[in-house]
Design a protein around this nucleic acid. Structure first.
Length: 239
DNA sequence: GCGACAG
DNA sequence: ATCTTGTCGC
């Protein structure tokens, strides 16, 4: 199937299924198995022209972790400025289960996304892209549902193995499961724990690593994700 | 059966 | 993710 055909995944899978979030973990896994076939892991856009990059981060209030808060923002990598940022709250019921994070955080993430008036060229999401048991981490799920380019930026490993990463900024080694390369372990700052970067949707393995690196200045996390996290944390602490 | 396990 | 203080270092 051509990329162009896959691009209208909404038509084949049905909008109803794509925006559905089962309460039952087993149903969630079955849904992942269906949606993962629509993920595109190839060069899809000219990364040189990717200027507006979106970032989303979710935080929780209290120990019950029932109240979720999220910030979605759009960052302009040419000016280095945040062009727009929105904040939303929503009760979260689905528990955290390794491999099913999107069923817990994607609903509120989409709620925040919908509140934005501007459009980003590409999105960076906290968590895995295709570096996931069923190749559908939250970044891939997000990308397919919204039909937009997305990259998974995780601070720790979900699956896969890799060799040690050279200690200098910009170094990376492939993250693989069996023989398949599912992402890159990227050092975004010298002598600082590396990031686990993997394509979410409509971007390749190399584009993902290069874009994330291009968005890192003096911090471990790329600006879109770092700023979103900074805003939710501040918002949660003040309210 | 025993660990591992994004946020 | 969240509960939590100070502290070492560029």
């Amino acid at each position: 199937m051509r990329d162009d055909a896959k691009d209208i995944s909404h038509f084949y899978l049905g909008v109803k299924d794509l925006f559905e979030f089962p309460r039952d973990p087993k149903e969630a896994i079955e849904l992942q198995k269906k949606i993962c076939s629509f993920v595109i892991t190839e060069d899809y856009c000219d990364i040189e022209k990717v200027r507006l990059i979106g970032g989303i981060d979710v935080a929780y209030k209290g120990r019950g972790a029932k109240e979720g808060c999220a910030v979605a923002l759009i960052w302009d990598r040419l000016t280095g400025e945040t062009v727009e940022a929105v904040y939303v709250e929503e009760s979260i019921n689905f528990p955290y289960i390794p491999g099913l994070l999107s069923f817990r955080e994607l609903p509120i993430a989409i709620k925040a996304f919908d509140k934005l008036s501007l459009k980003a060229d590409l999105w960076m999401i906290d968590g895995a892209g295709i570096a996931h048991p069923r190749r559908l981490g939250i970044a891939a799920h997000f990308g397919v549902v919204l039909g937009l380019p997305a990259i998974g930026v995780a601070k720790s490993r979900l699956i896969g193995s890799h060799l040690s990463v050279p200690r200098t900024k910009g170094s990376w080694v492939p993250l693989r499961q069996n023989g398949e390369v599912i992402g890159h372990v990227l050092r975004t700052r010298s002598d600082v724990r590396p990031l686990y970067v993997s394509p979410g949707h409509k971007v390749s393995l190399l584009q993902s690593a290069n874009l994330v690196l291009a968005c890192c200045s003096r911090y471990r996390l790329p600006e879109p994700t770092r700023l979103a996290h900074q805003l939710v944390t501040a918002k949660v602490h003040s309210n």
